[in-house]
């Protein structure tokens, strides 16, 4: 960690007026500062900003500084969102980490986190050791020659499945962006991870109302039972009537460079019967175009199986 200047603006306007790196829960920023991966000279502690509130009266509106743990416990939060949060990190981290910060968390790629190693995301043009190195945890979807790192958030997967939007405040005013459009594929510029403009701040996360998302879940598959990142995860919401799937939302995590919506799987499910066969054939679409690396080929079948498992869990009792 390098010495830095710390200020604590009290209003959004003040926060936007100063150049610097925003500090919310600190669970990513402080971690990466200790590793010298991030070396900001000026840190703005935004915890005093009035970006609070959990409103479930019409969909879901979340102040960007709401803590993951508080949102997870709040009644009326869609199950997929709540479960994704509860399976994230540890209780201690959930008590600190903000929802806005969660969406901006950096990848857990071992090379990104080690300044002794090259990394195109941290140091553009320096190379990507993960392509031939320890890549069991890495992505199979949305990858490029320059970067194969996974996006680590669980809740972003659930939010993307449910068409969430983020509200961004900047010096030039406020704008709203679909979360699905917010994240950028690495391409040739893996250092650009999202649509945030310099100095912009996430102020709110909004999930539009979707009543049948009461029938939603988040399945997370990992190497231990708690406090571990996903090898593969699936957020699924299903609208089931008379043993047929009327509509579906499916997004997956742990397998892609950004939280990954699977509209082709949704299309395959729409109108399908509630049956193991239909689930397997819809899940088979999930890995089209996937590009496994030397150590993570197992993620392709695992991804299909994770989707099948989520579909089975949502249709317990209504399956043929």
């Amino acid at each position: 960690m390098r010495p830095f200047e710390l200020t604590a603006p009290a209003t959004v306007e003040d926060a936007l007026a100063e150049p610097g790196t925003f500090l919310a829960g600190g669970t990513t920023l402080v971690d990466l500062m200790k590793l010298n991966v991030l070396t900001p000279q000026h840190v703005l502690d935004i915890n005093a900003l009035p970006l609070r509130g959990i409103d479930t009266s019409d969909g879901l509106r979340l102040g960007a500084l709401e803590r993951m743990g508080d949102i997870a416990r709040h009644p009326g939060v869609y199950p997929a969102v709540s479960r994704a949060l509860l399976q994230s990190a540890s209780q201690q981290l959930r008590n600190m980490a903000s929802i806005g910060g969660n969406l901006l968390q950096r990848t857990r790629c071992t090379y990104f986190r080690d300044v002794a190693m090259p990394c195109n995301r941290r140091d553009p043009g320096s190379g990507c050791p993960a392509r031939s190195g320890a890549n069991r945890m890495h992505a199979v979807l949305g990858t490029s020659d320059s970067c194969v790192a996974t996006h680590a958030s669980d809740v972003a997967v659930a939010l993307i499945a449910l068409d969430a939007r983020v509200t961004l405040a900047g010096a030039g005013g406020t704008r709203t962006v679909e979360l699905a459009d917010f994240y950028r594929l690495p391409g040739d510029t893996p250092q650009v991870e999202n649509d945030l403009r310099p100095g912009e701040l996430i102020t709110e996360v909004v999930v539009p109302r979707l009543d049948w998302a009461a029938n939603s879940t988040y399945v997370k598959v990992r190497d231990r039972q708690s406090y571990e990142f996903a090898l593969c995860s699936a957020a699924v919401a299903l609208d089931v009537r008379d043993a047929r799937i009327v509509d579906a939302r499916v997004a997956v995590g742990g397998v892609a460079t950004v939280p990954w919506r699977l509209r082709p799987v949704e299309a395959a499910l729409r109108g399908a019967p509630v049956s193991q066969e239909a689930f397997e054939s819809a899940a088979a679409v999930a890995t089209e175009g996937a590009a496994p690396l030397s150590g993570n080929g197992f993620k392709l079948p695992l991804l299909r199986r994770t989707i099948v498992r989520a579909l089975r869990e949502l249709t317990e009792g209504s399956r043929a």
Binding site: D114, A134, R224, S226, Y227
Partner: peptide
Amino acid sequence: LEIEGNGRLANADLAGYLLPVNAD
């Protein structure tokens, strides 16, 4: 511990080197 070809340990911290948690 995963030792890479160049000798670097790929998972030399308690996030990458897994130990069971209570839930396990």
